[in-house]
Simulated scan of single mutants.
Amino acid sequence: MKRVYLLVITLFLLSLNMSAQKVYSVEYANQANVKVFVVDYENQADLKVFKVKYQNQAVKNEGRWFFTDYANQADKKIFFVKYANQADLKIYFVKYANQAGWINQSKLHLMY
């Protein structure tokens, strides 16, 4: 019985370390987990995002996003808003993977 509890606790702790970096862009704000605004300048962003080509490259909560084709494949559903004050998270798309990462650590929880 102790082994079952230990297994359940271990699986739970491992799931906490998993991150939501597979995203799907929804059509309506009420379908989204996170509302996102794309800023013009890096210093305005909470998160610098790099779009990866393959799903297995989108690991950890480091700003490497894989855009899925279907909502049920995504860890988070996002909606791109028109104005910065409507957003939960402000992002800036970078050209290289090593540039991706969090600027505003207080928003980190949004993508878990």
Rank of each mutant, 00 (worst) to 15 (best):
M1W: 08
K2V: 01
K2Y: 05
K2W: 05
R3D: 08
V4Q: 00
V4D: 04
V8Q: 03
V8T: 06
I9T: 08
T10Y: 03
L11Y: 02
L11T: 01
F12L: 13
L13W: 06
L14E: 01
L14D: 00
L14T: 04
L14N: 03
L14R: 02
S15F: 09
L16C: 09
L16H: 05
M18C: 14
A20S: 15
A20I: 02
Q21Y: 06
V23T: 09
S25D: 10
V26N: 10
V26Q: 08
E27I: 05
Q31H: 11
V34P: 00
V34W: 05
K35I: 04
V38C: 03
V39Y: 04
V39C: 11
D40R: 12
Y41G: 01
Y41I: 05
Y41P: 01
Y41S: 11
E42F: 09
N43C: 06
A45R: 07
A45I: 08
D46I: 06
L47H: 04
K48P: 02
V49M: 10
V49F: 13
F50D: 01
K51S: 13
K53E: 15
K53Y: 13
Y54P: 00
Y54K: 10
Q55H: 07
N56M: 10
Q57M: 14
A58N: 02
A58G: 00
V59T: 14
K60M: 14
E62I: 12
E62Q: 13
G63T: 09
G63P: 01
R64I: 12
W65S: 08
W65C: 08
F66L: 06
F67N: 07
T68W: 08
D69V: 00
D69N: 14
N72L: 09
N72S: 10
Q73H: 12
Q73D: 12
A74L: 11
K76C: 03
K76N: 09
K76A: 07
F80Y: 15
Y83K: 13
A84E: 15
N85H: 15
A87R: 07
L89P: 01
F93L: 14
Y96I: 08
N98C: 04
A100W: 04
A100V: 04
G101C: 06
G101I: 07
I103Y: 13
N104G: 10
Q105R: 14
Q105L: 14
K107R: 15
K107C: 08
L108G: 01
H109L: 06
L110F: 11
